[in-house]
Design a protein around this nucleic acid. Sequence first.
DNA 1: TATGAATGAGCGTTCATTCAT
DNA 2: TATGAATGAACGCTCATTCAT
Lengths: 192, 192, 192, 192
Amino acid sequence: MARAIQKRTLQTRAKLVKAAQTVIDTQGYEALRVEQVVQLAGVAKGTFFAHFSDKDALMDQLIGARIDALLDDIAAQTSPQDISGMVDALMPLMNFMTCERYVFDLIIRHSGAAAREEIGPIATTFGRHGEVVSHWLEGGPFRQDLSVELLAEGVQAFSIQAISLVFCALHNEISLRDRLTLYLTAWLLPKP
Amino acid sequence: MARAIQKRTLQTRAKLVKAAQTVIDTQGYEALRVEQVVQLAGVAKGTFFAHFSDKDALMDQLIGARIDALLDDIAAQTSPQDISGMVDALMPLMNFMTCERYVFDLIIRHSGAAAREEIGPIATTFGRHGEVVSHWLEGGPFRQDLSVELLAEGVQAFSIQAISLVFCALHNEISLRDRLTLYLTAWLLPKP
Amino acid sequence: MARAIQKRTLQTRAKLVKAAQTVIDTQGYEALRVEQVVQLAGVAKGTFFAHFSDKDALMDQLIGARIDALLDDIAAQTSPQDISGMVDALMPLMNFMTCERYVFDLIIRHSGAAAREEIGPIATTFGRHGEVVSHWLEGGPFRQDLSVELLAEGVQAFSIQAISLVFCALHNEISLRDRLTLYLTAWLLPKP
Amino acid sequence: MARAIQKRTLQTRAKLVKAAQTVIDTQGYEALRVEQVVQLAGVAKGTFFAHFSDKDALMDQLIGARIDALLDDIAAQTSPQDISGMVDALMPLMNFMTCERYVFDLIIRHSGAAAREEIGPIATTFGRHGEVVSHWLEGGPFRQDLSVELLAEGVQAFSIQAISLVFCALHNEISLRDRLTLYLTAWLLPKP
DNA sequence: TATGAATGAGCGTTCATTCAT
DNA sequence: TATGAATGAACGCTCATTCAT
């Protein structure tokens, strides 16, 4: 009888998500307060927690959805044939992850950890990210002595590293894009 | 006048740090409460905030000092001559960073320099970590086609990646050590 | 939606007010601590601040209510027909206002309306005090060449003056009652 | 041997007073912090308390001195011969007392009370104020059926009342000057 | 589901005042 | 006198989360 989960429930959830997105668009992720979201959505505080186990679940979903959309765009493109093309393809994702320190921290925290048993939206995107990059690597002119899965993990590691350094007072002379290019060149290209 | 810091100031600060360390040793980092620290140190709460801008500043210093001590140990050893030796050398650090989720989060948060211009203790250790690893790489049987600095940054990236996956629901079948070994082998060894 | 205030809300507020009154009855106004009030009321500290913007707001309400009760008593009596009777009628109020330096200071501070637009409880009682005294003056054997409102304002001015001098090192040889009698005689009686 | 209280002591005190006045001129009385004063004066915090028993003593002195100066101006004028002239004479004082709510409160508090045994600067000015006004009343065309001292006390009471209403949300339609005129006319003029 | 008052533990703050040097 | 680190007792606040209705 799971049919009753319909209409009003979904509408309320949608109202909450929309309200949250509005808050984020105007004030950023970090500033989001449950209070403000429910007010904007026109529902009671308790209702929020009937739809999301906690505030983190909302954030996870929101940021996860955003990353997913970016991965959709990335996956829709033809596989890049060189490092430069790969970096170009990854940049929208990189930019999103550096839009707020809070977002970066949250992504790192969810990079897998959030759930013990259940994988949340953000964690799921990591898996998808790996697949997308693995796929790229399969046919391309890249290093062949390692599995594409391992190479993809490295791409992730270097992406995180590059982002970390954006938030760092040191090393700011190099741009995010240049740093990522540097890393991926070193990591992915066959050695002479 | 910028006169020298008084002896009493140093003593009080030491009392606070010692008290904090005692709490951490018995209850862990996350459980530390400012209230408890000042009580144990026998100073007023106001004094705490005269020495540390907030609880986080104390944690930064404490964890930074701990990492520094671990780096001292690492630096004191002879340079490892293979991946296995390098992983052995790095493991104490890796273990500390994974001792508590709270510690890992805090390290990540502080990794990119607490403030714009001022680098906090933890952030500083990242620089030192790079130096130590760079030094190892100079003489060893490692990849020679990249600068040691770049290689060291990769070691950092893969270390973080390996640690992240410890707190991750996926991929837990592989141990931290094995994963780090895998990564560093792929990253540092000359290609065939 | 501005729905009616819930019963529980009223109950909690009542619990807080009652607890506060208990503290005051046993230890006086100045000794009141928010901590103690919430403990006695059996509610959380956060609840206190959900009901009263700060400790001062509680005090304002408490003292305002007390003055209101005294004004009720005063208004219930028949109008005094001479200065002596008027002073008798006013004395309970005067005594309350001089019961604690803290109370007097607080009354003075709130006398001129806590905020720009919003009049707090204490400030409100000043208006009511004026009305009560005005009413007395209407029929009595008092000065007729001035409006009762103006006369009432004078009564207030002299009351404050008399009270101020209670807390004063000088002039203490005359009692509060005698001083008020002196003032009101000069102010209210028709001149020969 | 009280001669040693000279030079440096007085210089330090002067520095403190000057610094305090600077703070007040730029930020007002309420915002004055001992910290800022000592910094501006270039002395240590402890030094402040070697010169003033507490912050209040400084305020008392500062405000007292200010009122005294205003009373000097008032006393230097010829005695006013009517209510209007009297109000004119009193206005500078009234304006100072209404410049900040904080100042008014402090004056009320010190209107006598501050000292148990010793009368402070502000309290002293009240006495002087009474004398000045009494002197005016002696020769003028004012009510003769009451002692000039009592009349002067009334002037004080009505001054305070007029000032109180300045800080009041109600009654703001009438200006300070008009209200004082109204009060003093009713109080001081012989009745028809 | 929806409601929204209540929770609650701890952090940070305040800043005049004290006191050992 | 001068110094300035230390004091200290509340207060206010935060804000995600819970729970009785």
